[in-house]
Amino acid sequence: MSNSVKLHYDVSGEDFTRAGEASGNIKKVLKEIGCDADLIRNVSIATYEAEINMVIHANGGVVDVDIFPDHIDIVLADQGPGIKDVELAMKEGYSTAPDNVRSLGFGAGMGLPNIKKYADEMKIETEVGVGTTIRLKFYIK
């Protein structure tokens, strides 16, 4: 377990234009390591969606990445408002994003379902008023 590559990012909730910096960096590292292109894309899309969610809904948060020889763990944790109804939030097309976010090209209600689609495993821990933690696992084939 000690030979994993660890990455940590603080995601600012202040500036929407900077959303995606963490995901972009993770993508760069995976490329440098020489990961398979499909895996890199899956990780990139899932992490980017989660990072966007963090900025839109939770005023930022932290992203921790652990790269092992056979899998990648990514934990995205925020101290935002939490998700009231996870089952509903997982439905395609359901969104609580405000209109100004839609004008930026997001908030179609595809974020969480899309994260689930691209990650091999996804766990959501959330509590209203406390925050949300999303745990993602990707297998390296």
Partner: peptide, 15 residues
Amino acid sequence: GLVNNQVVRTAEMMD
């Protein structure tokens, strides 16, 4: 027709 950083970020993630 959308112009902001996230358009480029999205394209980047999608290769």
